[in-house]
């Protein structure tokens, strides 16, 4: 398979599967639906049973998951299947087939004894846990690695749980380089997830503003609300273009461009849900209207990708290493 396949071809499939997943009883049932459609394997190598496509093709799939509030750690399954393919093809295969429900504990390291931010850990068979040396280990959810009863219901659709590690954690190991690549893939997919979620919130807001009348006029006839939605269109378009830019091949500045795309999505996406809640008025603040679920999942992705920490590091690196040959310090007359 090659990149000649149009990424858009995946969009309809992904939407339909995500819709079906909403009716499934649990994570395992969703894993089967997603696996049958081949969605776990979009970016996994063909040798391991994946489609061997680029991240570009995974973007619409993950965006559909964000848009449809998919209750499954899809990003985690995708990046794990790709990272494990060269290390343990059988393990990658079990994730691809939906047999193994795998997730990642995004915060903390094994040495701390407690790691967190592991979406759907309560149902998981395998949990990737990072280590202080930059590597990671794929642990079986067993006595050694205990998933604590989740107290964190922040993300209503995809709750995460803390994971306790008693003693040394064993399992398939990933080196620091593989972990870096996995995190890089995850950052871009998280941006796509937020894009899907934010775009859906904007379309809900537009639908409401066109249909709801106040003072005898549709809300959309008020310029202040039209402008709010125009700004949100700018936000979603900016996230989309940022992702597209990060995906364009052979960039010298790939790390910077990817980090910027992720930071932008994490920092600007949630505001689209916040604005949609405002446009919905009192209804927007109710549990039934799904805007809060989008807001929650976008904020959760922001935490998994440690956007706030990254922004700080990004700023420090900018000040320490900004290099434009026109402003070399020695050129300045002091």
């Amino acid at each position: 398979m090659t990149d000649e396949i149009d990424p858009k071809d995946f969009e309809d499939t992904a939407r339909a599967v995500v819709e079906a997943c909403a009716k499934a009883s649990d994570g395992r049932a969703r894993a089967r639906l997603l696996a049958e459609a081949g969605l776990f394997g979009v970016i996994a190598p063909e040798e391991a049973g994946g489609l061997g496509l680029s991240l570009r093709h995974a973007v619409p799939v993950v965006a559909a998951a964000g848009s449809g509030l998919l209750a499954y750690p899809l990003i985690e399954a995708m990046v794990l299947a790709r990272a494990l393919a060269g290390v343990d093809a059988a393990e990658a295969g079990r994730i691809l087939s939906g047999e193994s429900l795998a997730t990642i504990a995004w915060s903390g390291v094994a040495e701390d004894g407690l790691v967190g931010h592991a979406p759907l850990a309560e149902e998981a068979d395998r949990i990737l846990i990072f280590r202080a040396d930059g590597g990671a280990v794929l642990a079986a959810a067993s006595n050694v690695v205990r998933v604590e009863p989740s107290s964190d219901r922040w993300d209503v659709d995809l709750p995460s749980a803390p994971v306790r590690t008693d003693g040394p954690v064993t399992g398939i190991e990933l080196g620091a380089e593989a972990v870096r690549a996995l995190r890089a893939d995850a950052d871009l997919l998280r941006a796509a997830h937020i894009l899907g979620s934010a775009s859906h919130c904007l379309s809900l807001a537009i639908g409401h503003a066109q249909g709801r009348e106040q003072f005898g006029r549709p809300l959309s006839s008020y310029q202040v609300l039209r402008h709010k939605m125009s700004r949100d269109a700018l936000v979603t378009e900016t996230i989309r273009n940022g992702i597209a830019r990060a995906l364009s091949a052979h960039r010298e500045d790939a790390d910077l461009v990817r980090e910027a795309a992720w930071l932008n999505a994490a920092r600007s996406g949630p505001a689209v849900a916040e604005n949609a809640i405002q446009i919905f008025g009192g209804m927007g603040f109710t549990w039934e209207v799904p805007l809060h679920r989008h807001l929650r999942q976008m904020r959760a992705q922001g935490s998994y990708g440690a956007a706030a920490d990254l922004l700080e590091r990004f700023g420090q690196a900018l000040i320490a290493s900004s290099s434009n040959e026109w402003y070399r310090e020695e050129n300045h007359a002091n």
Binding site: N241, R245, E312, F314
Partner: peptide, 25 residues
């Protein structure tokens, strides 16, 4: 003084990359 603005400058630098994304698209 500048280091006190690290987060704001990071945000600006992100926006510059996003602007390039708009232009290149």
């Amino acid at each position: 003084i500048l280091q006190g603005y690290a987060r704001e400058l990071a945000q600006i630098r992100v926006e510059i990359e996003m602007l390039k994304g708009h232009v290149e698209t």
